[in-house]
Each structure stands twice: as C-alpha cells, then as structure tokens.
Write a protein that binds this DNA or RNA. Sequence first.
DNA 1: CGTGCCAGGTGCCCT
DNA 2: AGGGCACTTGGCACG
Lengths: 255, 255
Amino acid sequence: MDGRFGVVSSPTIEEAAGLLEKLLDGSSMVVVAGVCSSEYEGRGASVSTEGDKLLIVKPGGAVILHGPRGFRPLNWQPSTSHTEVATAEGLLTLKFYRRTPREVLKIACSSVWYVAWVRFPEEGAFWMYMTEDDLRRAVALHPRELLGEDIRFFAEEKRTPSGKADLYGVDGRGNIVIVEVKRVRADESAVRQLEGYVRDYPTQAKVRGILVAPDISDAARRLLESRGLEFRRVDLKKAYSLLKPGRGRSVLDFL
Amino acid sequence: MDGRFGVVSSPTIEEAAGLLEKLLDGSSMVVVAGVCSSEYEGRGASVSTEGDKLLIVKPGGAVILHGPRGFRPLNWQPSTSHTEVATAEGLLTLKFYRRTPREVLKIACSSVWYVAWVRFPEEGAFWMYMTEDDLRRAVALHPRELLGEDIRFFAEEKRTPSGKADLYGVDGRGNIVIVEVKRVRADESAVRQLEGYVRDYPTQAKVRGILVAPDISDAARRLLESRGLEFRRVDLKKAYSLLKPGRGRSVLDFL
DNA sequence: CGTGCCAGGTGCCCT
DNA sequence: AGGGCACTTGGCACG
C-alpha cells in the first residue's frame, strides 16, 4: 500500500475489510468488485439482491455502486459523512452515512473479486463547450444572424415571480422581447417557462415571447402557438462558431 | 482470462491494448485505471487533460469515465455502437462511437495502473420504494388521510395540451379537482405544471388545483396563491405506510 | 443554506 | 422512434 496504486486479487472477507479500513480515509480512489447486495434508505428506499457489483469510492466521499448493466448506478451517495467497515457472518459489510439529507447506503458482499486503488489521484482540467450558456451568449451577441432580426438585449437571467428568464430585449418596433433558450429540442415545459415570464412582465404593452432552440416538439409548438408565443430555430454549432470562430468544424462532420 | 474475473497490474500500453481488444466484446464488466485525457463531441463537446481516471465499460456498451472527485462522471456513453482500441505514440487510445445521437468519446492513456474485469457478471434484482408513483397511488387511495377531505378520483396520468396531469377527481361539492404530486419540495415549475393542467380543463365551472408535496418553496407558494391554487403538505413515509402497512418504520428512525 | 435551473442529463412508459 | 416527465436526479450560481 505504499505505491501510487495497488490491487489485491481474491482477498478473503477479512483481508478486504482490513484493506478498506485503511483505504477509505479519503486519500484514494478505490474500486471493489464482488458479489454484493445493497440497501438504501433516505430520500427514497431501495433494495438489490446478490449479484456482481462494482463499488467505487472517491476522495471526497462520493460512493457509487454499479450493477453489470446500464449507465446509471444502482445506488450512490454524492458524499458521505461517516463510513463503517465490518465483517459479519462471512459478509463484508459497508455502511455509508450522509447527514443532510439523512440517508444511508449499506452494502454486503459475500465474495470479493478484487480491491484496487489509486492513492492521491491527480485531477486533470475539464472544459465543456456548446452549453446553453454558450448558446444564450451567442443569441445575445448575434440576434440578427440567429433570430433574423435586430434585438437589443438589456438583461440576462433576470428573476421574475415565475422563475428566471434567459434574455430580455427590445425589438425594432420597441416591443419588449423575452427569450427562452434551450440547447436541446424544446418541450412543453420550456413553453410553460416562457409563458410564465411573459405573463409576469410588469407592463400593459405587448410583450413578445420567443423560444429559441434547435428544434421543438409538435405538442410544444401547438401550446406555444395557442399562447401567442414565437419559435426560432437555431443551430447549436453555428451559434457556437459565431462565439468562437474556427471551432465550427469537427471530427463529427466527417464521421 | 479464463476465470470468472481477472486483474493485470502495471501492464504496458501494448499489453493493456491487447487485453482490452479481447475484453471489450460485451462479455465483461471492465475497469481501467490510469493517467488519461479525454475528448467528447456530440450533443455537446468537452475536453479533459491528463489526470488519474477510472474507466468502466459494461456489457451492453455503457462507458463511464470518472475523475478523482465528484459523483458525476467526466464523460460517458450510455451505449456504444462501435469501439476502437489502438496504441499510438506510446498512448493507449480508446474510441467509443454512438450512432443516435451521433457522438464519440476518445480516451488516451499514457500510463495504465491496472486493468480488471469480471466476466459474464450476474445481475441481481433491484427494487425502488417511495417513488412519486407510490405517493400518487397513496393519495388516490387515501385522500381523507392525506388531503383531509374526500375526493373521488376518476383518472390518473391523463394527457392534456399542457402535459400529463397526475390525478383528476371530484370533491364533496362536485368541483373538479386536479392534483399534481411531488415527492420532494415543490418548486415553481410544479406550480406551472398544475396551472397549465387547470387551465386546460374543458369546462366553464370552477376547477380546483391542488399541489401535494412534503414541502413547498416560498416562491412557489406565492406563485401558487396568486394563481388561486391550493397546497397540501404530505409526509412521504406516512403515505408509503398507508400503501404498505408495516413498512413505515426504518433504520433511519433510530439513527 | 435555500431557490431555481441546466444537464452531453438518463431512464421509463406511452403512443 | 418521438413525447412527456420523474429522478435518492447532481451540480452550479446567486441572493
């Protein structure tokens, strides 16, 4: 356990417990594979029966229990306030407690295939592009290219009784325009958001509501039109390329 | 690679590539730990620089790349249609492609701490309790206990132009009642949902809208009251115990 | 710390 | 497939 990382294959239940006692001190990214069952109780409650599981515990206390299939973990704890490792009746039992909200995840393993760890793991940097934030900024900066008209925007992310609207502006005729931006196909909840923002705007004059997204569902479009709101189609990559010239092309174009 | 599971510690890049060629055939739950960078492009785009990473590949094609911290993976692919393993300039490179939506995740590792796998992993059963579905059924079956009045419900999950409303019923005075259920603190979007459903109900008569949740945010309550809607507080565990008598008590009560 | 909302959200169920 | 929505949603930014 002195190196940068380590693996113990086929430990006994007692060996695994001894290892984990030391490893779950927040210094290591730990993986346990074995045959385990689990119980969760807190905001909800769940039970899983014995099966092959993969347990990941990270520095910082994130706990993730994966089954053999699917992207989502079976159980997890975004962070833990207290951890218990024990052996009982031939089982390795792990308990992860969280304070707020109060919840507990219990895992019991009858076999452990391996325990592996990386000590003091180094964190690289991470950047995300083409987020809604990018799209919103692109719309605010290039309304003519993306919406087909000139709108002078004067507020972003402004609080209203119905929530936070994305963009507030004035069009060429002096109308107030409220824009709700979605980076994915817009659905009915997007229309409901926009509807609330428009209704909440404190004026007797006409307020335009524009939903900006790459696409809109049929049901959302019907709702939108019945509420007198507008839709503008926008391409996410085009918007991003307006923001960062030169980044428009990508490997996917040639796939 | 014949046993139920296996671990190879400190493989060379070429050894790791050779192993993964065989392991990524959908038969195994595979873990790779190493120093890697990643690139994603598809619905969005992201880049991560070199750092300790944990890569999980499951039968079924789910790919999950974790950094040292946090619950959420840095990158992932819920399923993959095509996988490529290669070595180039001392790097182990992995590419995971997905067809719909079209996206690709590339991972490049300069060091591999270990490769571990479990073959043909067995999937246990999984049950979840205290879901919104449970709460909705409890409200439908026990309106007196949970809402404080008798309501005869005649429809669930009914489609309206604004979306799907949870419950439709008739109260003691013959009023139509529409109920929106939340298993967590209700926010403004819950109020917007209910508002839409009430508005869409095809009648001139008064329609009551009741939001049922363990709690409600101040802003949501203000919005709700300004729209003439009602709120009923309900306890998730009490509701669940009405549904499944005897399951009300739990370890958390004694924590 | 609560409030609101985005997320490459994912998963489930229905049409 | 698309559509609508819950989720132990998690995570962030803001008051």
